[in-house]
Write a protein that binds this DNA or RNA. Sequence first.
DNA 1: GGTGTGCTTCCACGAGGCGGAAGCGGCCTT
DNA 2: AAGGCCGCTTCCGCCTCGTGGAAGCACACC
Lengths: 243, 243
Amino acid sequence: MRTANGKLLAVLDAFTRDRPRLTLSEVARAVGLPLPTAHRLLAELTAWGGLERDEDGGYRVGLRLWELGALAPRALGLREVALPFMEDLYEVTHENVQLAVRDGHEVLFVERFAARRAVTVLTQVGGRFALPPTGVGLVLLAHAPTTVQDAVLAGPLERYTRQTVVDPAQLRRVLAEVRRAGHAISDRQVTDDAVSVAAPVWQAGTVVAALSVVVRGDSAAAVRPNISGVMAAARGISRSLPR
Amino acid sequence: MRTANGKLLAVLDAFTRDRPRLTLSEVARAVGLPLPTAHRLLAELTAWGGLERDEDGGYRVGLRLWELGALAPRALGLREVALPFMEDLYEVTHENVQLAVRDGHEVLFVERFAARRAVTVLTQVGGRFALPPTGVGLVLLAHAPTTVQDAVLAGPLERYTRQTVVDPAQLRRVLAEVRRAGHAISDRQVTDDAVSVAAPVWQAGTVVAALSVVVRGDSAAAVRPNISGVMAAARGISRSLPR
DNA sequence: GGTGTGCTTCCACGAGGCGGAAGCGGCCTT
DNA sequence: AAGGCCGCTTCCGCCTCGTGGAAGCACACC
């Protein structure tokens, strides 16, 4: 039995990247609530500013939620510190530059810059992705508690391309190499034409984020010129974070 | 009498830019709730991911709220479309480049790029500011419904510098000129050393955002070279927005 | 040992959350 | 024009569950 507050939060959960706009009936169905209950909860969230209703009765996430979310230290807080280093990396490379954090068993992308000619990537700011096979995900997983590593490697590992590593034993060796080298290279693990290098961002002895550059290429060599830049930028961010 | 949901939302409201981290007792005091009630609500929000509790019992906004906020079309949705144009403007100018929307009688800053040597500005991503005297605020107010304009001009207008225009009649003339010229110039209205030019971003016949460049200077002349670039970038964003 | 502060848990009570029913409006089909 | 369907809004009696005072724990300080 859900609490009243639990229902309210479930209404918020109904909005996703795939369904950013929902009507009253769609919310009621998605959350499994009677219409009057959904109606009341939507009215309360809209009055608060967390949702906005358009002229055709569609609800979308409102600025109040974004504003609150902007207070999250692991999102915009981290981003504000990282921004100058990401901008430098972006100007030097004109490729995809991404900043991500780990949330449970997934990567959450906090920031991304991409030039128009940069290779297309599947990730979006605010979006989630599997830890392996992304570069940032490999870094975040390599430095996660062993319980997280075990759980991720025990779960289903999805093959995105013919190159995607899905054998747990092989992935463990990859993670060990990531820790040894201080960076991860993801060679056509997510799409057939993208190679990335990612480096860890440290804070108070733990890895709190990962920074990466993603370029077009058909081997790890494509990203080799960027390795030192990414590592230097990640170290710069680490130094700039409060202890 | 507040609803249960109202109390939950009030707990979220307790977190601000000035107080991004709060203990249980601080939340209870801020919201006016007994400790067990605040405790229960904080537990519910933390379980959901909207808040995170640190080892010393401090609560901060969690990634779930940021992730939901990222779905707001008027925040990151707008930003994703605007980003390439802002990056171009940033690379050409290496000054402060800002994107803002109007929320009620205030400006809310959705995105900002700033080079290290750029003039210091008082605004922050996720932060709010008065409509006048900022450049983006003048644009947003000039194109707001007349009821909003009347309300803002009837209210207290704060003087930030000796140049700040606070006479309502004079401000109406400024707003008329903004509409005529298609851009606003804010000359040392917020700080003594910053001048900005802002242009409107249109969508379906209304102004939904404003884009600006802020430079160091002691007269409007400082920003004149940037006017056409800002207007062109704003038009580019407008064309890229869905109808 | 005593005091003060912050936090956690319990639980009797009644405030208010709940959702079925009824009704309204708009759109579509016949 | 009439009827049916769908989405939405409002009402209100019922009873679930949200509430907060009390009690207790942990820790720090004197």
